[in-house]
Every structure is written in C-alpha cells, then in structure tokens.
Design a protein around this nucleic acid. Structure first.
Length: 623
DNA sequence: AATGTTGGCGCG
DNA sequence: AAAGCGCGCCAACATT
C-alpha cells in the first residue's frame, strides 16, 4: 500500500496527502487530487511521524492537515521536517475574512466544527518546552478512537475540498492560492523557529542587566515565591532613582514612579502640570526631576519586561524559544505569545550570539512599505524612484531636494498623518505622484465608508464593528444631529484601511520571501555550503524509528539542525543561523528569495525590494 | 482573589 | 524627533 502511494507521489508534481492523527502515535492518511477529491483509500499508519517522513522523502508532497501549530511541533520532535503543507485552519481564516459571513452548507459547518475540537492551542503558559509526552498533543487525540480518526479525516477532506473550490473562485485565484501556500509555509517556519530557538547568551544578558540596574535583588531568583508580602524589591539603581525623584518632587512622601496617577499628582504639587506622564511630554519639561525620571522609566521598563525573571522563564539551553502566532495580526503580520519576541529591545541584541564556528545572517528589507506602495499603485514615476537603492533620496527632487521631506510625505500618506508640514508635503505628493497618492486615498475612502479593503494577495481587512456602524450611521431624520463622534470614527477607520493595504501587502511579500528563503536554505548542503546538486531523496526503511540525529560538531545543542536554519522573523527582518562556511550561500539565498517574492507577488515590476544583509557573530553588530 | 481596563513603552 | 498604522506585555488600578 505504502509503496503504491509512494510511487504515485514520485511521478506527480503536486500531490496532496490529508493527515488525521489517531490514537497514540497512529494516524490516517489519504491521497488527494489537486481539487481535494480523494485518490484511493485512506491508509492507516501505526507511527504517523514515520509515515510522514517516508512519504516526504519521495518529494513533491503538500500535507493537508487541520493545523500546523498542533501537529507539526510533534513531528519536529520526532525529527521529521516537511517542505509544504496546506493549513486548513489558516486557510479557513483567510477565506472567512474574505467572504464575510460563512457561506458553507450546514454539512460543511459540521465538518469544520469536527476539525476544531480545541478552543485554542493547549500550551503550557510558561516558556518551558513541554516535557516528554505523547507524540501528539494529548488534548488532540485524547479519547480518539479509530472511528473518530476516520470522521476527522472525512471532515478534513470535505473542508479542504470546499476551500480549494473557494480559492479557485477568487477574483485572483493564483494570488489567493499563493497567499494560502505562503501562510501555510509560514506556519511551518514558525514551528521550526520555535524548536530551533534564537541563540541567546544568558550571561551576556545578565551582565547587561547588572551593569545598568545593579546586582539582581535577592529573593527574586529561583522558583520559590518571594518571602513575605509587599512589592518586589527594586534593584539598587532603580531604588536610587526613585529616591532622587521623590526628593526632587518635594520629598514629603515617597512617589512611586511606576504609578502615572501618583506621578501626575506629585508633579502638579511641584508646579508642573502635565496631561500624561508619557516620555514625549516629560522630555519637554525643564525641571531637576526630569533626568532621573526619564532614566527610571527606561530602566524600569527593561527590568519589568526583559529582566531576570524573563531570563529565567524564556531562556534555557542557550536558546530563546518564542511562540509565534501566524496570521495573529489582521494585516497578516505575525504576533507572538509570551516572551515579547517581537519587542526585544535593541539593547538586548547584544545577547544574541551565534554558536562557536557559526554565524548569524541578519537580513532586513530596506524601506519595504513605500516600495510596496510603489509596486501596488503602478505609479510609473514613483516606481522609477523605487527601482534603486535609496527610495527617499530618489524622491527628494520632488521635495526641493530634501530627503527628509520626501520621507515625511510618504509616511504621512501611508499612515494618514497630516499634522505640521505634512499637509503641504502631501499636496506635493498628490501632484507629482498621483497614482501612488490615489491608491492610498482610495483605500482611506473605502474605510471611511465602511467598506473592506484587500492586500495584493487578497487578505481582507475586518469589517467595521457594529458600534462603528451605529455611530457613523446617517440618520434619516434631518432634525436629528449626526453623532459628533461619527467624523472621528470614520477618519480613524480611513487611517486603518489606508495603512492596511500597504502593511498587509508588505506582510504578503515578507511571507512569500520567508517561504522562498526557507526552501532555498533546505537545499544548501550542510557540509560544503553549496546548494545540493540533487535534492536528498533517501527513503527510509519502512517503520524506521524517528529520532533527531545528534550533531557531533556541537555538544552545546544536540537539537540544532545541521544546516542553515531560520531562527527569527520580525515583520520585515529575518535571521538565519548557519555554519560560517555557509554564510555566503545564505546571503545569496536571501537575495534570491527577495527577488522571487517580488516576482511572485507583483509579477513584472520595476520596483526593487533590496534586502540588506549582515553576517555577524552578534545580532547587535548588524547595522 | 481573580479578572478586566488603563497608561505607558518596546518592536516593526 | 514625532507623527500616522499594527502589535504584546508590564504595573497600577478598577471591578467583580
């Protein structure tokens, strides 16, 4: 049975195999045609991971499964990697937002409900890796009998077939298909990055903290709760600053700088009236309390968000392992859960260091969003400016030779700002680059009118809320005053949709770039740094045990993949961890991935999407 | 005591 | 430098 299926897989370009986990480590597989219809009977596998590994080795497979986030980590723990998948949950979310309310039949709604047994990912709240456990999430398979696995497989196949039909019915089916594939590939990359982890030197982090804050306060370390009630002890430097602040504010009683309300009162008592205690507000004030207060805020933020307890919770075995939430942002950007992975202070990049003999390739898409706008709008003059290195410099001519003005004009156009001199600059932009300007203006108008907008690949923004509709609803009665909040709400949504078309299309490009890079990295031979002449096709003996091969080169991290691998992705920036000898090949792969993404997402375009790359030991040394 | 909201700030 | 957009997370504070 397996041999027959494998043979078929080897000869067809794109073969889909649906996967439904069953009891224990077992599962059901069923080959599908491109449109999602069954090809042959389901196959039972006692060891699902081994079966996936075996089929994967034959090449050209796209795995169809309910959710990468729940299945793939277990496969990775078993040492199995796959190159392509169709994530039914992510595809469903894309289709749902595209179509508004669900258009499925009752039967399909039931099928979809069957596939969603979990309210959410059942993960431990702490950052620790799940300890040794059943191959698949117990919550996913608990109580599952063979019959239920069969029902899951049926539901999966039905929902997937429906999705394929809906994708094909899109206004731009090829683009939407690319979106679904890229979103799914992103989910694979996210799971792999969580498993690999970002190399993180805890001792460097600790030294940074100690240098800035003083030694770690006693009693806060370890797993035991702090003795006694009351607030946690402040590190010495924070305590000093808090004391200085209290003295500078009159010193009658101590002020807690962490409390905006207390601070505003104390400042008022000292003759300083402020609407808030934001950094921007405080910086404008000339008073002895301000310097220590600004320093306190900066350090206290570092201590609270990325201090020693963060280190205890999130870094182990020299790795920071965040959990990414693919599609977690409406624009298609990723979010993260726990550890603040996408908000790492620049200061702490000093702690991100490659393993000995290895390197970090840090790649960053330069001026991505204005370039996206240039490609989206098809504005010839604007695209010409985006064909080269520095987009803003190329536009400066239109703004009296002032690069800064060009940048401000662009940012205002993309974000909806119009304060200060931005209004004038926008007028210049509108005159000189009418198509680029018109593109975002049209998106803003759509938003103000309550319509939805889409990214280049077809990701749709959420519709306005019921509350928004109620506020902005025009009353039929001319005697009734329009809600005064209506204008504000309408303009706010206009800024959202104006930004959405750019930010979401940038996310499209970045996701496709990530997927392309991931595929190219897999082809770089871990041993000589050159792309493999032949893809490794080494079918394993039937029922082979799946274990991660230990890396003899590095006792430090036996889980680290031997070849170049992604370790970080942040909107328009990516980090690859690789052996020093592979860095050159990785840099080339990054550039190729950027070009491939531009071609796939926009087709032929004059606009360039350059990625600046740096090969470094330490993240902080990149640019 | 647990849960929700607010103000503030880190990242892109 | 901040401004417009998008997030996550913290301590403090409010509510249940």
């Amino acid at each position: 049975m397996l041999a027959r299926l494998s043979a078929a897989c080897g000869t067809i370009g794109s073969v889909r195999i649906a996967v439904a986990p069953g009891p224990g480590q077992s599962g059901l597989l069923c080959q599908l045609d491109e449109d999602g219809s069954r090809r042959g009977q389901p196959v039972h596998a006692d060891d699902l991971a081994a079966a996936v590994r075996e089929y994967e080795g034959t090449g050209g497979i796209r795995w169809v499964w309910p959710a990468t986030a729940t299945i793939y980590p277990a496969l990775l723990r078993a040492g199995v990697r796959v190159s392509r998948c169709h994530d039914v949950t992510l595809a469903q979310a894309l289709l749902f937002s595209r179509d508004g309310q669900p258009g499925e039949s009752v039967a399909l709604a039931d099928a979809w409900a069957t596939l969603r047994p979990l309210p959410g990912p059942a993960q431990a709240p702490s950052g620790r890796q799940p300890s040794q456990q059943a191959l698949f999430d117990p919550a996913l398979t608990a109580g599952h009998h063979e019959v239920q696995a069969g029902q899951s497989l049926d539901a999966l196949i039905a929902v997937h077939a429906d999705q394929q039909a809906r994708v094909a019915a899109d206004e731009h089916p090829a683009r939407f298909r690319l979106l679904v594939a890229a979103e799914s590939a992103g989910a694979l990359a996210a799971a792999e990055m969580s498993q690999a982890g970002l190399p993180w030197r805890a001792e460097v982090h600790d030294e940074l903290l100690t240098g800035l804050l003083g030694p770690r306060p006693p009693g806060a370390a370890g797993l035991t709760a702090r003795a006694g009630p009351g607030p946690a002890p402040r590190p010495t430097r924070l305590a000093e600053l808090a004391a200085q602040i209290s003295v500078a504010l009159g010193g009658r009683h101590p002020v807690n700088p962490d409390s905006p309300a207390q601070l505003i009162r104390a400042l008022a008592a000292a003759g300083i009236r402020v609407p808030s205690t934001r950094l921007a507000v405080l910086k404008e004030i000339d008073h002895p309390v301000i310097p220590p207060l600004l320093e306190y805020k900066e350090l206290s933020r570092l201590h609270a968000a990325f201090g020693w307890s963060w280190l205890d919770t999130w870094v182990s075995d020299g790795r920071f392992r965040p959990e990414y939430v693919v599609g977690g942002v409406v624009s298609g950007r990723w979010a993260s859960r726990g550890g603040g992975a996408l908000q790492i202070p620049r200061l702490l990049r000093r702690a991100v260091v490659a393993d000995p003999g290895w390197a970090l390739v840090v790649a960053d898409a330069a001026q991505l969003e204005p370039r996206i706008l240039a490609a989206l709008a098809g504005d010839r003059a604007f695209a010409a400016a985006a064909a080269g290195g520095d987009l803003y410099a190329a536009l400066a001519g239109a703004f009296g030779g002032d690069r800064g003005k060009a940048k401000l004009a662009l940012l205002s156009a993309m974000y909806g700002g119009a304060g200060g001199e931005a209004g004038q600059l926008l007028a210049v932009l509108r005159q000189r680059f009418p198509d680029a300007s018109g593109y975002v203006e049209a998106a803003a108008r759509a938003g103000e009118e309550g319509r939805v907008v889409r990214s280049v690949l077809g990701r749709t923004c959420p519709p306005p809320s019921a509350g928004w509709r109620a506020i902005t609803e025009e009353s039929g009665d001319p005697d009734t005053e329009r809600d005064p909040r209506a204008g504000r709400a309408s303009r706010a949504r206009g800024r959202f949709t104006r930004n959405f078309v750019v930010q979401a299309s940038a996310a499209d490009w970045a996701l496709v770039m990530l997927a392309a890079l991931r595929a190219r990295l897999a082809k770089i031979d871990p041993h000589n740094g050159q792309p493999d002449a032949m893809p490794p096709a080494q079918p394993l003996p039937l029922g082979a045990r799946s274990t991660t091969p230990p890396d003899p080169d590095d006792p430090h991290d036996p889980q680290r993949p031997p070849g170049p691998h992604l370790v970080f992705f942040q909107h328009d920036e990516v980090i690859v961890h690789c052996h020093q000898d592979q860095a050159e090949a990785v840099v080339a792969a990054v550039a190729q991935a950027g070009e491939e993404a531009a071609r796939l997402v926009f087709g032929p375009t004059q606009v360039a999407f350059p990625l600046t790359t740096a090969v470094v030991d330490c993240y902080a040394d990149a640019k």
